[in-house]
């Protein structure tokens, strides 16, 4: 579904991604872990073209994303951000209806129906007319997931979806993501929640300093890391 072919990315003089090769298959759930600054979020941001790449290519279903329209690409790839980025001037239901109305030119009634069903799915059906500022972080993130699903993406990108949440709110968001995973959605996730990664991931990728150091099934990578750097990172975050 997604294939990185020797992707390089610089921020000024910083070499953020160094010739990254990776692939994500249909229905696969890939979790990317690594220390901060390792380039894991950048990988996600390159997939939906929030960042331009300097060299290499990224294929989406066999076609280079560099040649595709943003609007086309974004209807097939959804993204959930660490800090939610809900639209604060719109109500919960308007947040979810916005893209179907303005990108897909859907009829208002139809968009409303879609939004209600998605918000019910993420357990936010009783907050349709609230504004984001009236919601907890966990609730905002669930609305953000519904907003993204409204475009019927084939692939969902999650960029540290629970890192900005109070600990007691993490569970409700992970629950929604697990449910999506169970329904067969293809996913790429960046997360620090190792228990969750083990549960949901088909494959875990460990990145450090712009390179992929090691890839493996959760059991292999988390319990028997082959590379020293992976071991060091895991020992730090698992204590």
């Amino acid at each position: 579904m997604i294939e990185f072919k020797g992707v390089d990315k610089f921020f000024g003089r910083n070499h953020i991604l160094k010739g990254v090769h990776l692939s994500i298959k249909n229905n696969e759930k890939v979790v990317i872990i690594g220390p901060s600054g390792s380039g894991k979020s950048t990988v996600l941001r390159c997939i939906n073209r929030l960042e331009k790449i300097e060299s290499g290519d990224i294929l989406f279903n066999g076609q280079s994303i560099l040649k595709q329209k943003q609007s086309q690409l974004s209807t097939e790839i959804g993204m959930v951000f660490q800090r939610f980025h809900l639209f604060p001037h719109l109500t919960v239901i308007q947040n979810v209806m916005e893209a179907p109305l303005w990108v897909k030119k859907m009829k208002k009634e139809q968009a409303r129906e879609l939004a209600v069903s998605l918000l019910e799915k993420v357990g936010m059906g009783d907050k349709l007319n609230s504004y984001p500022s009236q919601l907890s972080g966990g609730q905002q993130q669930r609305v953000a997931i519904a907003r993204s699903l409204a475009m019927h993406p084939k692939l969902m990108l999650f960029d540290e979806p629970t890192s900005a949440l109070d600990p007691e709110l993490v569970g409700e968001v992970l629950q929604v993501i697990k449910q999506l995973a169970a329904e067969g959605m293809s996913m790429a996730l960046v997360t620090h929640e190792m228990g969750f990664a083990r549960e949901v991931a088909d494959r875990i990728i460990f990145m450090d300093k712009g390179q992929i150091i090691e890839t493996g099934t959760p059991d292999d990578l988390l319990s028997n890391p082959k590379e020293e750097r992976t071991r060091l990172f895991l020992s730090r975050i698992l204590h």
């Binding site: 943003q70 086309q72 993204m79 951000f81 897909k104 993204s148």
Partner: peptide, 27 residues
């Protein structure tokens, strides 16, 4: 306005001008 607002709009498939009119402008 937080840069994340336009990024969210773009990631939902909105063009820059629609993002400006619907999301950034009102805020």
């Amino acid at each position: 306005i937080d840069k994340g607002q336009m990024e969210a709009a773009r990631s939902l498939g909105m063009s820059k001008s629609i993002g400006m009119i619907r999301i950034i402008g009102p805020q």
